[in-house]
Design a protein around this nucleic acid. Structure first.
Lengths: 233, 233, 233, 233
DNA sequence: TATGAATGAGAGTTCATTCAT
DNA sequence: TATGAATGAACTCTCATTCAT
């Protein structure tokens, strides 16, 4: 209670409070995530979330503007996670193709293994809720797409090809594949034990698809086999 | 109004009635389809549908069990359409690969050009509504998948490979691609004029992907180039 | 069921339905009026109104947009009533002064005797509810004021005086008197048996006040200085 | 910090504390006054007041029992102000009529110029809140009325008339006039520069009204019949 | 068959008030 | 004293569904 201690005491208490507040926020958010996944967004009442998080209804509204806000925060977390995962994976590869594969693998493993609920919310529960949610969702996909498209462009450039539109279309296609496969094998049927096999299969498919597009686009007929080797090896 | 005419009159009237009834049913269903696409399933009230279809609310309930039933009927129509389209396309090709390409192209054109609203309902509005709808949706995808998987199996068998699971995964992946590309370029941005380019690109990608999977699965290393030619041509 | 009868039958049924609908509307509105007066606007729940009117909550919302709408409809009815009452009274008098008195008397009797609840809603319950209600309320007072001010102007003009601002101020003052007296003797204490005495008193007061303003404004001295002296000393 | 100083220090500190406490009380009350006027009583949340007064929500509840209490305290202050103003004004006049005029003028100037927010709270925001507030409001008006009625009685008595009821009715009427005029020209439209003109006009009106009532009540005919005729015709 | 007024359970949101620190 | 996170009862409004006509 002396002058010297006062600041410390205050600081410590304040810190603990802040920590606890942050914790509550997280608790509520995670609870919402679970319930949204299990029962669907529109079938989940604020009361359910409150009860499951062991707080009062008002407390939920103390931390979140409204029900939609919960979803938006969850999507934000997902967006952050996606970018993070992709960024790290991209940086970890040496050749463009390696980077590409790493990214795909990381994306799969991250969502599939670690945060399947994020996947469900992104792919199922955030659909048709409101324009704001739709915008957030679209934003995530756009940024994801942008990253993938750029990666594809890099690969194409290695072969002296520059076709932005093709890169975009292919990235959309790849995004769709990943999404659908994930949805099918995580959400619809639970086959998460076969993750590794499926991931491998898909990556092989993508590699072949890319190669094919590459050939199709290359002005000189059937690029030198040396190049191919680089890609394959 | 005379006795002799009565039977005839009744018959004619009855026919007209039946025709009118069928027409009403269709009118309501189509109206619902439009509104579901424009405003979303959960944002569309039965009253809206009734008003737009120029009938009373009760009439909607005369033709459909409930709101969900409208969606299920729409999904049924979509399922029918999908199978029809695919069936015709498959039968029209000679080689497995040709059939495959025809199917992809038909699917694109059918949804893209003719029934984009079916696409929207299948991909967006029927998500997270109820277990029944989810089941119907899943059924459509499963059957679609089944068809595609079988087609892929056929292709694989041509090369002496038999891998049901791989065929399935690849078909899921391809389905996701088509779905996503369609969604992106029809629903999100309207780039339907570039249909042809995009379709071509995707088919090239798919062909390459398939080839790649084929190589990956084939026990003998790197199938003879002669085979490849068969595939490409 | 024959052709000739059909239109009549339909018409009669339709008419009855329409009448019943109108009746329900009125029932709900009157119920709301009573409850708003007895318990206050904000203390009255929609459920209370529904229960008292013997309908479901939804029925209230079938006839009225929302709770505020009930109040606005009531204010509209009041506005109509006020204008009607004043208009008739004005037309019934021969000299401006007579018209004026008739109007005041009519206003008192109408609200006081026939529709005290309208008075309460206008003076008490419609305050501070929302901008829309405030606007409606203000509109009523403005129009009322406008009418009174014009009447005063006419009186002034008879004496060759033209002073719009004075007429306005005086009309505001008179409006305030009437309002307050009504509120005091109808709402606060119930002294409605003394209506006649009070009305008379007030009219005498108003007449004198008007005369006084008239003198004050008239350029040539109309009143004998002696009288004035009497008042002052 | 030494022993000798301690008592003094405590005393000084205690005084400062008390002063600060009083200050906080006033800050919160004034903040509430402002917000009640600007946004209305029921649209003002305790949180808003706390934030605007730069204190915590709990602090508001330390100084005031509840939200209603804030309003009651404000009304008390208004009551005190009104009585003070009127008392001084009454004492400053020599003749009853002069006192009367002084009182009216003082009331106008006080509310109009100095405390328009008190006026708004008294006339608008304290309406329909709760029985307690209603009682307090009524008390203020009653006392105000009482004072005015007594003043009128005095005037009447100068002319040998004794009519308590008439005095009351007239005082209510005058109160309503002042109230309404103030409300109209301060709150609704801001015409405070014309205060002087309006005040004069009203006082002329009141004087005339009083005179008229006086004549009406006096058993012996005081007014010349000629005058009356002029008014009537 | 067709109508559309009526229903009422249910959900989101607010906010005055409390209380542990 | 002061804080502000936590509470939860209360209230408005929605809309799928029903049913008498």
């Amino acid at each position: 209670m002396t002058r010297q201690e006062a600041p410390q005491v205050v600081s410590v208490t304040a810190q603990r409070r802040k920590r606890e507040k942050e914790q509550r926020y997280q608790t509520i958010l995670m609870t919402a995530e679970c319930l949204f996944c299990e029962n669907g967004y529109s079938n989940t009442k604020i009361q359910d979330i409150a009860k499951a998080a062991e707080v009062a209804v008002g407390t939920v509204y103390f931390y979140f503007r409204n029900k939609e806000d919960l979803l938006l925060q969850l999507l934000d977390a997902t967006a952050f996670n996606v970018r993070n995962t992709l960024g790290q994976a991209f940086r970890s590869g040496k050749t463009p193709v390696e980077r590409f594969e790493n990214a795909g693998r990381a994306l799969f493993q991250n969502f599939w293994g670690l945060h399947p609920s994020q996947l469900i919310i992104l792919l199922r529960e955030s659909i048709g809720v409101s324009p704001e949610v739709e915008a957030s969702r679209r934003g995530i996909f756009e940024r994801l797409n942008e990253d993938v498209a750029r990666a594809i462009e890099e690969v194409l450039e290695e072969y002296g090809i520059s076709d932005r539109f093709a890169a975009e279309v292919v990235s959309v296609a790849i995004g769709g594949m990943l999404e659908r496969v994930a949805y099918q094998y995580v959400i619809s049927q639970d086959r998460s034990e076969e993750t590794e096999t499926i991931t491998r299969e898909i990556l092989v498919f993508i590699r072949g698809g890319l190669l094919s597009v590459l050939r199709d686009l290359s002005p000189t007929q059937m690029s030198a086999p040396g190049k191919e080797k680089t890609l394959e090896s």
